[in-house]
Amino acid sequence: MSEAVRVSGLTKTYPARRGGARVVAVKDVSFELARGESLGLVGESGSGKTTLARMLVGLARPDTGTIVIDGRTRQGKERGRAARLRRAKEVQMVFQDPYGSLDRRLSVEAALRDVLRRHLPDPAKETVRARISELMGHVGLSGKHLGSRPHELSGGQRQRVAIAKALAVDPAVLVLDEAVSALDVSVQAQILALLNRIRAETGVSLVFVTHDLAVVNEVTGQILVMYKGEAVERGATAEVLRRPRHPYTDMLLSSAPGPNWQPERVAELRAAFAGAP
């Protein structure tokens, strides 16, 4: 059995605004993710973590490098309905903004039915209905929300619907792009627990893209730290967070508010870091 994700030598550059050299967003990043495992992709804004995630799901095309998901090499130039549906089954994504990630015209039920009709091998009415209630159970929403439209739901409920829609495709990998950052902590905790449970129950592999190390600590086994487009540290989450090897990881950890947090020390570290080659 191959890994769920194998990425090697991924690079992406963007044209600079006014001539000049191209801006490197992601530079020679490689990693693997075993099936049913979860990976945290962390970094600050501009670290390239979001670009990496968008390449992973196919919303951006890498300049060089290969992405293998679920044993198949992803290619940008596939056309046709069958290829599109197959790619969909490989990887899905949940976005940060709970307000914009749902089609505001569709009720929860209509949105789920829309996905299922496209992706279930047997889209009969009963199978669709059974799968909808199964999905609602997975994400912890009760049947009374089926008729609700996005504006009638809270931020946390919308994210649950977004997760249900992604799971409806039955993907091998689910990428969560800052999916809990906009939520209150109590709601955030519920969603994280939910994702842990879903991973255990369905065996889906998770990639968490986030700036929040504590979130990564709660839900991932592996971690990849990005800095200026490069993967500066990789390893088991618990290990990296306890004993960071790269000075950037160390600085990120010192920056996170906690019992021994000293903003003055972070400022010193950062100044030293900016001065270093």
Binding site: S186, Q188, A189, A214, R243
Partner: peptide
Amino acid sequence: FVSPSDPYTKALADAVPRLPQRDDTM
């Protein structure tokens, strides 16, 4: 965080995701 008096504060404190204790080798 040590001794929240209100149940809501306690729930909030419990919900906060945390980092593990650092080994201060660095």
